[in-house]
Structure formats: structure tokens, C-alpha cells
Design a protein around this nucleic acid. Structure first.
Lengths: 214, 214
DNA sequence: ATATTTCTGGATTGCTTAGTATGGAAGTCT
DNA sequence: AGACTTCCATACTAAGCAATCCAGAAATAT
């Protein structure tokens, strides 16, 4: 009687025949493929091939299903590459620095050559048939978290007296979020870090033009 | 001996049995479906159903294939909803007005309730398996056109003496383009016109802060 | 009226999809 | 040594995919 349909790494020193492939490496390979192609067009055949020519039985035993694999991939992404967003929730940073760092680190990460360009959260499940709406919703919820993080930074800046509680200030969350999410498209289309970084510098002027004196 | 594999509307008063469905309405229905779901996850069964329960034979006779239908849908999109970008190439407008109008009209169009939210060009072929890369490239080329249009506006402003030929000015194309493409994501995630419109107002301050006096 | 052209409905093609069943291999535990 | 557990290779299922074939229906042209 096993509660879980597939074996995750939730135990040590297991009995029975050991797995012949590296689960972590397989997960990374799957992440790269999902990142480049998105959820739906990525087939199990492609996945099994890039994960080390593992068999269907091995795949399902280790990861459960394509969807549960994707969910695990998303968690891994958030804990690694997605950490470029961490400044948003780092209250030791000033709100302005938090947003600027998030933008700059996102730009660098999304344009790096060591992995697919763009953002898994923004582009990973953009095209979905009705049966995969839950997957789309998973990423949408994550984007909403970013939105909330940016909004919280602005609100903190108002509370701190760094920004006025003006009508313009209220427009900043949408402004920064739209730009942040737009970078995924630009990165995938081949924009370079330098280009995006320079645009970020100019965008931050909007903040500075609204900032109150200390 | 027919050069074309399928019949388009390139003739009048044809012989033979007339088509029983409205080709234009079918094309619009296909556009809505592609817009909402994207190219790859949209199946022929869904297409045939939404196009008026037409038969496979009718579909292929009228549209050739799924890919040629999509290409035709993209052309139709560009000639209708995509016209929100037209100000970019309208030299009777000042460069600043061209960009502002493009942004505002895009925001309104992409959030309208009369059709799917977001942008077919940005999101229509975001997730593609290798065999459909040509479709992805088609939309990428169209986005490049937008990029070029925005860049041309900035250059025109410099030529006109509305903007200085400064380092900041050089960052404006990427800034506006990233924001423009980011709106597709925000619109699909449920942002309202008002929110985006307010962000656009603030973004245009960047232009004004750089503008030279006349 | 008849020939010709074109469209339609339905069955069908070959291929790919996600996922499963089974039998045996390769370990650990006692 | 032998019981037990887990994994793996292979064959397989059922459904969906884009696309095609064919026979008949419905129009025009002569």
C-alpha cells in the first residue's frame, strides 16, 4: 500500500534495485526542454530521450506523469533561475533596489546562453488546449505572485516615504510588471543583455522622477 | 492541372457546386480559436467544429492545410485588429503621438471583451515543437517589424529635433518595445485597459523628460 | 438534356500521443 | 541462501492527430 503513485526522493537507503539514471540530471534536462518548447508541444518521447533514453516504465515510476513532471520542473525553476526575483521579497533592500535588481537579474538570466532564452513562467504554457488549462493556471498564479511582489515594493516605498502616495505612484506596479514580463518576449527574440539593461536604466528614471527627497 | 492546392477567393462566378459555408466567417472563427489557444494546441477537429461543422474535405479544399490557414489568419489579423500598430508608420503623426497611440490602441484592443485577450502575434505560436518552427518564425518576423517601426519613430524624432541623439534616446526603442510586448501577457492575465492606460501615461513621461524644447 | 466542375459527408489512412502491463533483472534485508 | 523490493526493456493499448480518398450531390456551361 503506497500512497504515492511514483517514487520521489523522499527517503534514503532504499531497498530494491537502484535507479540507473540520475533523477536530478533528468529533471534538469526536462526543464531545459520544457523551457525551450513549452509544456504541450513537448512529447514524452522527446522527454525520455533527453532524460537519458529512459524507458516509459522508468519515467512513470520516477515522475508520475507529464503534468506532475512539469510541476516539479516549475518548482525547480523557481528555486534556481527564478531566484532572480528574490530581491522583491528581500526587505533588507530598499524598494527601489529590489525592483531594479529584479529587472537586471531577470534580463541577465533570460538572455544567458547556458540555457534557453526567455522565461519558463511567462512562456512555458502560453499555448494550451482546454485539457491543459490547469497547467496554464499554475504559471498564471506564479506571475500573479510577481505582480504582488512588485506592488508590495511600491507600497513599501510609499510607507517608507520614498515615494508619494500619488496617482502616478499607483501606475508603477503595472508599468514595472509589464516591462518585466515583456523582457521574456524580447529575450527570446534575441535581444542582448546590454540592450535590456540600458532600457532598465532609463525605466528607473521614472522612479527617480517621482522619488521624494530623504 | 491546377496550380493551387486549394481554392481561395481569387475568382468570381465559378462553375461547379457552390460552397455551403461562409469562408470569411469560417476564417474569423479560426482566428478566434487560434488567438485563444495558439497554433499548435488547436486541432483540426476544433477548427472544423468552430468553422461551422465543415467536413475535412471542405476544410482542405478551402484552406489547404492547418498551416496555410494559420498564415491566412495572421494576415487577416494584421489587416484588422493589428491595425492598432498603424500609427507607427503614419508619418503625418509626430513620432511621440505615433508611439503613444500605438500603445494605447494596443492596450484597448488586447483587453477588449469582443475577442480573446492578448496578442496573436506575441502569443500565437509561443510553444512550438521543432516541426512548427516556420510558424514561430512567421510571428517573430512580424514582431521584428514592430520593433523596427518603433525604432524608426525614435530616429525620426531625433531627425526632427524632438529628441536629442543621446545615449538615453538610444535605449528608448527597447524600452517601448518591451513594454508593448509585455502588455500581451498582462492583458491575458486579466489586466484592465484603465490599468495599462495609466501605465502608458507614466511611461510617456520618459519621452517628455528627454524631449528638446521646440 | 448532358457534360463538366466543384463541393460535401463519411470512412479511412498512417502516425503520434500519453500511459500501461508483464516478465525478468538487480539490488537489499534477514 | 532465499525472500523481498524496486527498477527496467519490451510490447502494447486506446485515443487523437493531420491529412486523404471516394462516391454522390449540386451547381454551371453547352
Amino acid at each position: 500500500m503506497e500512497v504515492y503513485p511514483h517514487r520521489e526522493e523522499n527517503q534514503m537507503a532504499r531497498t530494491g534495485r537502484p535507479r540507473e539514471f540520475d533523477r536530478d540530471k533528468a529533471l534538469d534536462a526536462a526543464m531545459t526542454l520544457f523551457w525551450a518548447q513549452g509544456y504541450e508541444p513537448t512529447s514524452l518521447n522527446q522527454l525520455k530521450a533527453c532524460m537519458g533514453n529512459i524507458s516509459p516504465a522508468s519515467f512513470y515510476a520516477a515522475f508520475g506523469s507529464k503534468e506532475t513532471l512539469f510541476r516539479e520542473v516549475v518548482q525547480r525553476y523557481l528555486q534556481t533561475h527564478g531566484q532572480v526575483m528574490a530581491p522583491l521579497w528581500d526587505e533588507t533592500l530598499s524598494p527601489r533596489d529590489a525592483i531594479e535588481q529584479t529587472l537586471r537579474r531577470s534580463a541577465r538570466m533570460q538572455t544567458a546562453r547556458s540555457h534557453p532564452t526567455g522565461c519558463l513562467i511567462v512562456q512555458g504554457a502560453c499555448n494550451c488546449s482546454p485539457e491543459n488549462l490547469p497547467v496554464q493556471a499554475l504559471l498564471a498564479a506564479e506571475r500573479e505572485r510577481s505582480r504582488d511582489g512588485i506592488k508590495a515594493c511600491i507600497e513599501r516605498a510609499v510607507t517608507n516615504g520614498e515615494l508619494p502616495a500619488s496617482a502616478v505612484t499607483q501606475t508603477l506596479p503595472a508599468l514595472f510588471t509589464t516591462f518585466l514580463h515583456g523582457m521574456a518576449c524580447e529575450a527570446r527574440d534575441g535581444d542582448k543583455v546590454k540592450t535590456l539593461d540600458a532600457a532598465i536604466t532609463t525605466l528607473m528614471q521614472v522612479w527617480d522622477s517621482q522619488a521624494l527627497q530623504p
